[in-house]
């Protein structure tokens, strides 16, 4: 048990690149360490990109299995965090598309009341709560662009690829989202 603990400590301190290399070579423990390191970030991201916490959890689980399978395709181990986030984004958008094409249950796939509630996201602080509310009020396409940019750190081109639109449309949607959000934040203040 002590040995196991020490082993976990060694891996916990190991840099992303080493863990990615070992995971690509089939080391489950290294991949688990990456999962523990970035899982909460991936989950937070997925929750903002999907319409329910359950869907977000499915997206993260799927994304991790994809990552595990494709690990050897990752060229730069140092880029593993951005790579994981990109997989989550693509999975989340796919999940939305699947829901639309199969979803006869619900004609409003992006209905804001299906977004994670503030309680589920437990947003601390009233300004955070105000931003959360303002985000929920945005059209889905704008909200996605904003989350991909602000939470995922993606470029216009990457966001465009994920959403299947041009980089120019991304730039426009992002500007509209920001205009609305800044205005609502200022009104709130």
């Amino acid at each position: 048990m002590k040995e196991f603990q020490e082993r976990q400590d060694v891996l916990t301190q190991a840099p992303d690149a080493l863990l990615a290399e070992r995971a690509a070579d089939g080391d489950v423990a290294a991949f688990e360490t990456l999962t523990r390191r970035y899982g909460p970030l991936m989950r937070a991201y997925a929750r903002r990109l999907t319409r329910s916490v359950d869907e977000a959890d499915d997206v993260v689980q799927d994304a991790l299995i994809t990552a595990w399978t494709d690990m050897s395709k990752l060229r730069e181990g140092t880029a593993v965090k951005a790579w994981l986030m990109r997989i989550v984004a693509n999975r989340a958008v796919d999940a939305g598309r699947r829901r639309k094409s199969h979803g006869n249950v619900d004609d409003h796939p992006e209905a804001p009341d299906n977004m994670p509630t503030p309680e589920q996201l437990a947003v601390a602080g009233s300004q955070g709560a105000a931003l959360n509310r303002a985000l929920r009020g945005l059209p889905a396409e704008q909200r996605r662009c904003w989350v991909l940019k602000e939470f995922g750190g993606a470029s216009y081109e990457e966001i465009g690829q994920t959403l299947g639109i041009s980089a120019a449309s991304v730039r426009g949607r992002l500007a509209r989202a920001r205009t609305t959000l800044v205005k609502e934040m200022e009104e709130w203040r």
Binding site: V28, F31, E32, T35, R36, G39, P40, L41, R43, A44, R47, R48, D57, V60, Q61, L64, I65, W68, Q120, L121, A122, V123, A124, G125, Q127, G128, L131, N132, E150, F151, R178, L181, V182, M185
Partner: peptide, 29 residues
């Protein structure tokens, strides 16, 4: 707005970091 977005992300991550959830994800993996 940018600063607020980063605060929101941190809050979201804190909420998403349940140990039980991570354990079940790892078990599935």
């Amino acid at each position: 707005l940018g600063a607020l977005a980063q605060d929101l992300l941190h809050d979201d991550i804190a909420t998403a970091s349940e140990a039980g959830w991570l354990d079940s994800v790892v078990a599935n993996l």
